[in-house]
Design a protein around this nucleic acid. Sequence first.
DNA 1: TGGGTAATCATGGGCGTCAATGGTATTGAC
DNA 2: GTCAATACCATTGACGCCCATGATTACCCA
Lengths: 157, 157
Amino acid sequence: MGLFLSTFVNKVDRKGRVSVPASFRATLSVQPFQGIIAYRSFAHACIEGCGMDFMERLSDSAQNLDAFSPEHDDLSALIFADARQLAWDPEGRILLPEDVMAHAGITEAAAFVGKGQTFQIWEPESYRAAEAEIRARALANRPTLPLRPKAPSQEPR
Amino acid sequence: MGLFLSTFVNKVDRKGRVSVPASFRATLSVQPFQGIIAYRSFAHACIEGCGMDFMERLSDSAQNLDAFSPEHDDLSALIFADARQLAWDPEGRILLPEDVMAHAGITEAAAFVGKGQTFQIWEPESYRAAEAEIRARALANRPTLPLRPKAPSQEPR
DNA sequence: TGGGTAATCATGGGCGTCAATGGTATTGAC
DNA sequence: GTCAATACCATTGACGCCCATGATTACCCA
């Protein structure tokens, strides 16, 4: 399974350690670096998380100026500069740096939120509020997602 | 057989376990992840269910939206963040999480409703009411579905 | 065609295992 | 020597696995 799914709330202990959900670790287990990449979100009060593979994809995309506008290029520069490699310990816990915790307002607990190819880390209460807003918006204005065809490389006529 | 068909009502035991209908399990048996993906519907008081393949299709489709776009954020939050991987036990049962049961109003029984590529899980009485409404609507305003041609080059099953 | 049998499936409960969590010890850097 | 990072250990509580039972269905054969 290659996706980050679901939301898990884990406690942050006195030392700033927090368990990465077992299913997220399973998703990342195929990668050479045993840990996560984390950087402060520039859009929300949360932390963006992903595996090294996704970082490389971002890098590839950033090099392609057609795909990324100058603004996006700046953003990717921000990302790489801010990204930290957080390896987990034998129990599957990472140590959250001070400034990262401060940016997300995390103190006692952290919510790991699956986003498919990536995930986010929120202060649980903040995420609850953000999610409620999104749900309200979804009820008012039902979002749709054009589904791509099922076959791996087949073109619909 | 590759579709979710028919409706099955199964009991939820004291632990919150419920048997996934054998025919649904057969549909999902070809997948690497032995279980279902479930997320709370944002349109109805029910649970949406599918296999991992469908989630991956959703993920692929979501990639078409720009990374970091608000639309992408909302959809990911609503689907990937809320999706739970519910593996079944050797008897074919899944454990329904508390909040998921609450969202659908499920207490003692659950109705598995086939929807073709996906399925839904309802509180049986709620579904009876919802189905009656749909039938009434269909009588008043006959829905149509433009059939696609019977693609000759596709592999038969 | 009917009875009997076997197989499949849904259901209930006990128990072991592993993930999350908290604490202590050890290592290494300054 | 002090501090911080990390490895090691110990606890507990949820959930995954096993067995046992009941009910329904499918199958076989006289």
